[in-house]
Amino acid sequence: MLTPEEWSVLALSVSVAGRAVLVGLPIALAVGWTMARTRFPGRTLVDAVLHSSLFLPPVVVGLVLILLFGADAPLGKALASVGIRLIFTANGAALAAGVMAFPLMLRACRQAIESVDARLDDVAASLGAGFWDRMFSVTLPLAAPGLIAAAVIGFAAALGEFGAVITFAANIPGETQTLALAIYAALQQPGGEAVALRLAGISFTVAIAALLLSEALLAYGRKRAGA
Rank of each mutant, 00 (worst) to 15 (best):
L2I: 00
T3V: 04
W7H: 08
A11N: 11
A11L: 15
G18W: 01
L22Q: 12
P26C: 08
I27M: 13
A28R: 03
A30F: 08
A30H: 04
A30Y: 04
W33V: 06
T34C: 13
M35I: 11
M35W: 06
A36W: 04
R37G: 12
T38A: 11
R39E: 15
R39P: 07
L45W: 15
L50Y: 01
H51K: 09
S52T: 03
S52A: 15
L56F: 05
P57C: 01
V61I: 14
A78T: 12
A80M: 11
A80C: 06
S81C: 06
V82I: 14
G83N: 06
R85L: 10
G92C: 08
A94S: 15
G98R: 02
G98Q: 02
M100D: 03
A101H: 07
A101K: 01
F102G: 01
P103E: 05
Q111H: 09
E114A: 06
S115K: 11
A118N: 05
D121F: 03
V123W: 08
F131C: 10
F131V: 15
R134C: 12
S137L: 14
S137H: 11
V138M: 06
L140Q: 12
L140A: 08
P141I: 03
A151L: 13
G154M: 04
F155P: 01
A156K: 14
A157L: 10
L159Q: 09
G160W: 08
F162Y: 14
F162D: 05
A164R: 00
T167F: 00
T167C: 00
F168W: 10
G174E: 12
G174A: 13
T176E: 04
L179K: 03
A180F: 00
A180T: 02
L181V: 12
G191Q: 15
E193N: 12
A196G: 12
L197T: 09
A200P: 05
S203G: 10
F204P: 01
T205G: 15
L211N: 09
L212D: 05
S214L: 11
A216H: 07
L217E: 08
L218W: 07
R222K: 13
R224A: 13
